[in-house]
């Protein structure tokens, strides 16, 4: 028999905003549920290293699922005639639908990039449903710096350009093996999906006017961002933390926008203590 990894994956169909969505999820470990949300245009494979880390899985049931339209999750029936566009409400509802379907009791939710944004919305709107939220590369306000139309047009390869856009979001110190695996996932995204996710990330998800209302006594908030992240910069992370009373922010030197997948060995030095603090 081969030496199997501890990660096990399954499919199921859940209802999101009135639509049946067949989703793929994978998990490893036992204990406190830790739901992991991937970045825009990618999928749950980004968390494979965390799922293989026995220091984490000894205490946490680490679960990652691919959002509908991403990875091995299907787009809804009828997708052919729709333009994919992720909104704040749909994203929040999708994560809650997943947690309900899995019967998870007050999970910790950790998301990266757009996932780091939505966990803050969860902490604001549904604080009692979550034990804590961890925003990796997450902020309550960001500024776009390129035209999203480049990401989905017939004369540009969507996968290659998505990867090329985000390649600079990986720190120069990150190992090549992990850099190119991270970018491979971007090259595999469906047409227009990264663009549709960035609609949420850059245009629909701003809430710096409401983030000060997050009550961290009901739902603790942790923010961790990489030094080399050029969208959710350390400055934007710290600005977000300054607006959320009780939020704990950490800047991770030598890491970029994809800490869990671009440099898992370095990332664990930052995330393991946070997970230990959460479980108390």
């Amino acid at each position: 028999m081969p030496e199997f990894e501890p990660i096990v994956g399954r499919y199921f169909t859940m209802n999101v905003a009135g639509e049946a969505c067949r989703v793929y999820m994978e998990e490893a470990g036992r204990g406190i549920p830790l739901v992991c949300l991937h970045t825009a245009g990618a999928d749950g494979r980004q968390y494979r290293h965390l799922m293989g880390d026995s220091a984490v899985t000894a205490h946490y049931r680490v679960i990652a699922f691919d959002l509908p339209w991403h990875g091995k999750s299907n787009p809804p029936v009828g997708w052919r005639d729709r333009e994919y566009r992720l909104t704040t409400d749909l994203y929040i509802e999708t994560v809650r639908a997943f947690c309900r379907a899995m019967a998870l009791e007050r999970p910790v939710v950790m998301g990266c990039s757009m996932g780091g944004r939505v966990v803050l919305h969860l902490a604001l709107n549904h604080p009692d449903e979550f034990r804590a939220v961890i925003a990796l590369e997450g902020a309550d306000r960001l500024e776009p710096y390129y035209d999203l139309d480049w990401l989905h047009r017939p004369d540009v390869h969507g996968g290659e350009v998505s990867a090329a856009f985000v390649s600079g979001q990986i720190a120069p110190q990150s190992p090549d093996e992990h850099r190119w695996e991270t970018l491979w996932m971007y090259m595999q995204g469906g047409p227009g999906i990264f663009k549709g996710d960035l609609y949420f990330y850059w245009y629909d998800g701003h809430f710096d006017d409401r983030s000060p209302r997050i009550d961290t006594t009901r739902c603790p908030v942790y923010l961790l961002s990489g030094e080399y992240d050029s969208s959710c910069t350390p400055e934007r992370t710290e600005a977000t933390a300054s607006r959320i009373k009780g939020a704990k922010a950490t800047v991770m030197p030598g890491i970029g926008h994809f800490p869990m997948s671009e440099n898992p060995a370095l990332f664990r030095k930052y995330i393991v203590p946070v997970l230990e603090e959460i479980r108390g």
Binding site: W150, V156, E160, A163, F165, Q169, A171, Y228
Partner: peptide, 28 residues
């Protein structure tokens, strides 16, 4: 902010002009 062309753009350190299509088509 200096490690990649796109990061330099985001930080306002670099500027690009002209016909961007061949640049974007072969960005990496």
């Amino acid at each position: 902010d200096h490690h990649d062309l796109w990061s330099m753009l985001a930080a306002g350190i670099a500027k690009i002009d002209g016909d961007l299509l061949p640049l974007i088509q072969n960005l990496q």
